[in-house]
């Protein structure tokens, strides 16, 4: 019997699972044609190609269309509150470093209400994969401008057009020091599967922005179809300046791995500190305070 007071180290056996084995059976509730279907399909494919044991995978989300993501995957899931996917995922990973932890969010969850957590998860280099399904709009609340909406967007909440400049998520992640930064597009599944696999395999914080159009409130399929292009072959993902250059490009939406470096992860760093310390119990701590 397992007790949570002395957790065993779970051993994960190699598995032989098909794409369907990773489907929870809960039917997605997104609008027909939503980009998120493409993200989910690529995700199933990626984790089945990686053959991640289902009980080893934890998927954490916040609120929004993206927040439903864990429900559709046969894995451990934690559907949190708006904006808190990253700290929830940090808690999961730091308590149980042997788990594969994926956080899923949208542009509102990540860059508006949850923005306070993004730079910190990045600077800690928590070994999790952050998938941001970016549709540049608030979909679940029926179409309000988000932090990545283009300037001038006219919606019910911005009837005269927005006057705010959108954020550049890739710039943000690169300048905060993310150790893996990439961008995909929900309609380019082959490339997206590869990116998801790389992001999950990377040791450290992986920041994957996926352009995932909202067919109902901000249909950008045509826009992205005409503007997406793979990052040029001469781009070196170890070159941060080059990554920034392509991230700044606004006429062309470059897809692929922008930046990658190896750095000690949060759990590795913490474990290394722990190893230098003698082990003791509550009795020894109490003894320090005897008169």
């Amino acid at each position: 019997m397992i007790s949570n007071l002395e957790l065993p180290t779970f051993k994960f056996e190699p598995v032989n699972l098909s794409v369907n084995d990773y489907k929870s059976g809960v039917p997605p509730v997104w609008c027909p044609g939503c980009g998120d279907y493409g993200v989910l399909a690529s995700f199933y494919k990626a984790i089945s190609e990686l053959q991640i044991p289902r009980e080893q995978l934890a998927i954490v989300s916040g609120i929004g269309c993206s927040g439903r993501f864990p429900a559709f995957v046969e894995a451990y899931g934690l559907h949190g509150t708006h904006g808190r996917a990253l700290p929830l995922a940090t808690g999961v990973k730091m308590a149980r470093p042997e788990l594969t932890v994926v956080a899923a969010g949208g542009d509102g969850d990540a860059f508006s209400i949850g923005m306070g957590h993004v730079p910190h998860a990045i600077r800690r280099n928590v070994d999790i994969t952050y998938i941001v399904m970016d549709n540049e709009i608030y979909g679940l609340t029926k179409g309000q401008p988000s932090p990545t909406s283009p300037m001038g967007m006219e919606k019910k909440a911005s009837p005269y057009g927005t006057v705010e400049q959108p954020l550049n998520p890739l710039m943000l992640a690169i300048t905060c020091g993310a150790t893996w930064v990439g961008r995909g597009f929900s309609s380019k599944p082959k490339e997206l599967v590869e990116l998801i696999k790389q992001a999950i395999t990377h040791k450290g914080f992986s920041f994957l922005q996926i352009m995932s159009p909202c067919v109902t409130f901000f249909d950008t399929y045509e826009h992205f179809k005409n503007r997406t292009r793979p990052l040029p072959a001469e781009h070196d993902p170890r070159d941060r300046m080059s990554a920034l250059k392509y991230a700044l490009e606004d006429q062309t939406v470059y897809l692929g791995l922008y930046y990658q470096e190896e750095r000690l992860t949060y759990d590795q760093g913490y474990a290394a500190k722990r190893q230098t310390l003698p082990n003791y119990g509550v009795r020894q701590i109490m003894d320090k305070y005897r008169r």
Binding site: G91, V92, A95
Partner: peptide
């Protein structure tokens, strides 16, 4: 949130 995540994990 971190504490909840850790407790969720056991």
């Amino acid at each position: 949130a971190m504490a909840i995540g850790a407790s969720y994990s056991g």
